[in-house]
């Protein structure tokens, strides 16, 4: 199996867009599911959100910060392994008035996949709210959900484009204006999800949010992605990745996300120090 990278676009923001050949996964993929990516034999199994799965290719966004993106920039042409699809997808049905919200790189991919699936179903009215850090970080039009949905809203965290603040601002406005919202899908940063969960709870709105957690095997073996849902332990990989945000213990989920912060820096430094130079360390 070859996981060739067929396209890599610098979105001129914090993120790259990557297309990878994975026909077996594409055939079985449902929006809301995720894949695991190993860039090289020695690589980590990294959970990845999928923006599109069509024509035998998976499209994903990759943040420029991490080591993976450096490998890409340094000329990686194929991935060692792509595994999936994993987790449960969304039910592709009529929800009525749906709002899909996102920030952060993974959330934007999920937003697109969900909007695309729901837009094909008659009877759904979709509002998509996408939050970016600033005007400069907004994706090019082709990679936003604008064309897929009935109403598209962009907010920026610094207010340099659209409304200032997170996706909660327009969502709250919709609620305040008395709009009947049947369902909310969302994903991205954990603190925003925590904040929106109280809004959704207060207004009793059904929802599913993708809980980003670190994973190792992604198949229910290691327990690294354990979460507390209504006090009960669940695994994001096999029970999720989407849960009703009102039931998630977000404080615990947020703390846990930083467990390997120091190690990430170490990996980055090591990569920078060894990626070329003397060649002694290269296999």
């Amino acid at each position: 199996m070859s996981f060739d990278i067929t396209k890599m676009i610098d979105l001129d923001t914090m993120d790259f867009l990557v297309d990878v050949e994975a026909p077996e996964i594409v055939e079985r993929f449902h929006p809301g599911q995720f894949v695991m990516l190993m860039t090289r034999k020695e690589g980590e199994r990294i959970p990845m959100s999928v923006m599109k799965a069509e024509n035998g290719k998976l499209t994903m966004f990759i943040r420029k910060l991490g080591k993976t993106s450096k490998e890409l920039r340094d000329g990686m042409t194929r991935f060692e392994n792509v595994i999936g699809p994993l987790g449960h997808g969304i039910e592709e049905k009529v929800y009525g008035n749906v709002v899909v919200v996102s920030d952060a790189v993974c959330g934007q991919a999920e937003n697109y996949a969900i909007c695309e699936a729901l837009s094909k179903i008659e009877g759904n009215r979709i509002t998509s709210i996408q939050t970016f850090p600033s005007k400069k970080e907004i994706y090019p039009e082709d990679y936003l959900t604008t064309e897929l949905v009935d109403k598209h809203i962009i907010t920026t965290e610094d207010g340099s484009f659209g409304e200032e603040g997170s996706y909660i601002v327009p969502l709250q406005k919709m609620i305040d204006e008395g709009e009947e919202i049947d369902f909310v899908f969302g994903g991205g940063k954990l603190p925003t999800m925590k904040a929106v969960s109280t809004v959704l709870a207060k207004n009793n709105i059904d929802n599913l949010f993708t809980t980003r957690q670190m994973m190792v095997d992604g198949s229910g073996m290691c327990g690294a992605c354990r979460l507390y849902i209504d006090g009960e332990m669940k695994l994001a990989c096999v029970d999720g990745p989407m849960f009703d945000s009102r039931k998630v213990n977000w404080d615990k989920a947020i703390k846990r996300y930083h467990m390997f912060k120091k190690k990430e820096k170490e990996a980055n430094d090591y990569y920078e120090a060894h990626k070329g130079g003397c060649g002694q360390c290269q296999k």
């Binding site: 980590e44 073996m221 290691c222 190690k263 170490e266 990996a267």
Partner: peptide, 23 residues
Amino acid sequence: NEFLIRANLMKAYKFPEWDTPIN
């Protein structure tokens, strides 16, 4: 399971040469 999968399968004892970390 997690500790051993990181160490054995993912070779975290060779971190950062291998990518998977272990604390």
